[in-house]
Nucleic acid binder design. Sequence first.
DNA 1: CCCTCACTAGGTACATCGTACGTAGAAGTG
DNA 2: CACTTCTACGTACGATGTACCTAGTGAGGG
Lengths: 249, 249
Amino acid sequence: MPSSKPPNHSSSGGAPQPGEAPELIWLRPERTGRGPRPAHSRTSIAAAAIEIADAEGLDAASMRRVAAALGAGTMSLYNYVPKKEHLLDLMLDAVAGEYDFTALAPTGDCRADLRRLAHEQLATLRRHPWAAALVIARPGLGPNALRYTDHFLAVTEPSGLDGAARLEALALLNGFVCQYAQYERTAAAGAKWQAELAGYLGRAAMSGQYPHLAAAFATATPPSGDPDTVFDRSLDRVITAALAPVTPP
Amino acid sequence: MPSSKPPNHSSSGGAPQPGEAPELIWLRPERTGRGPRPAHSRTSIAAAAIEIADAEGLDAASMRRVAAALGAGTMSLYNYVPKKEHLLDLMLDAVAGEYDFTALAPTGDCRADLRRLAHEQLATLRRHPWAAALVIARPGLGPNALRYTDHFLAVTEPSGLDGAARLEALALLNGFVCQYAQYERTAAAGAKWQAELAGYLGRAAMSGQYPHLAAAFATATPPSGDPDTVFDRSLDRVITAALAPVTPP
DNA sequence: CCCTCACTAGGTACATCGTACGTAGAAGTG
DNA sequence: CACTTCTACGTACGATGTACCTAGTGAGGG
């Protein structure tokens, strides 16, 4: 369609309409009003994709599989999701929509609120093991992600930090929780190879090339309590770091 | 070389040999001694793959492309790298081998050493933009990664923390630096869409659905100094968090 | 009212990916 | 020497994302 659309149509408010289609899926209207009603919605598409990804992993959520799960032809999906990337955006935002922000309403105790929020986030990421890697890789700008950001800003209001610092704190905490979820995931996946891994590490430690590693292993207490304990311990440190005033000294 | 030749070839020393081939590539010997000499080495393979990934992105480093860059047939590569995953392992470990640990030798000032190490790591991740996502997703157990771990343990020895706590600190710091590198990457990639993104966020803020976000934007100072300043500021906080004693209260 | 055309649904086709499998030959061991 | 065990590589298969094309539908302007 090289026929350039004339600059009519009074671009939608302040939206910069550079040339053709916007890159962010959130900038495309879900429905324009003309033509037949779409048979599916973004939320139903995201739900179908999430169900597949939860059950069989992110790779299983291919365009074909998702379309089939919706009872649609493969290429019909491209009317809703111009690129596979955008499907991931929809999935992520749907996951971000699982929070119950009224139950997490700010209590005035900033640290406690953040702890609860982080635990909720970890639970969500455990429910959707594929999500952590995506959250790290992509910005997340859908309506639910914005709602999450807004909630975070509300919770951290009593901290005395300004907006920018609180957004940095959000990134820090978000990153930590995702990281931890990822760690749990690889640890669970690697449990089968733990035996050969232990042998490998043991041999590496005994090789003398890694003296400090060997020393650390010698004084290690493997279990160190249940897995949530180590999360809580690190979480507390990260919250402290995130809420620290901008220029301590 | 502690890998003493086992008297019987049924079990290789302390390595648990569950059924067939080990899952970690580091558990397969690079050379068994029998048959013709391999025409390539793990390091040369990793170097070729890294060159491609640096220039054209991680997706361009396909088995075919890497094999062609080595002047080998596609399937020959599978003699060295039984799975694509393992190629990524090789690449990551080669990147981890770029550190000059003698130049980063511990000085006794734990915080300063960690700052230098983190800056070196950020520089490395900027040189190889694809690496951050992989470091987050995979454990990293090759010889160079182990050397890095050992160095980190050496540097943090004066902190007074035990081995386990220092490994947690490593994960925390590592995660933060990778996260930051990823953020830089997506920010750079999104610079083109910054205009439409700004419009989108502005409209979202004006919609009234995100009051705290709108307030934060209203008081925002976009540049906030050069990008390294914000890294340094957060890095300091994360180092503090990572080195905090195990049970503060 | 009906015409019109933006929109939807869906099929076919292609390049590219990872990799299973089989064959041919070379280097080390007995 | 023969035998074993490795390397090298071509062919082939299933899966993926998606460009392009054909129909058909239903709301808007005349």
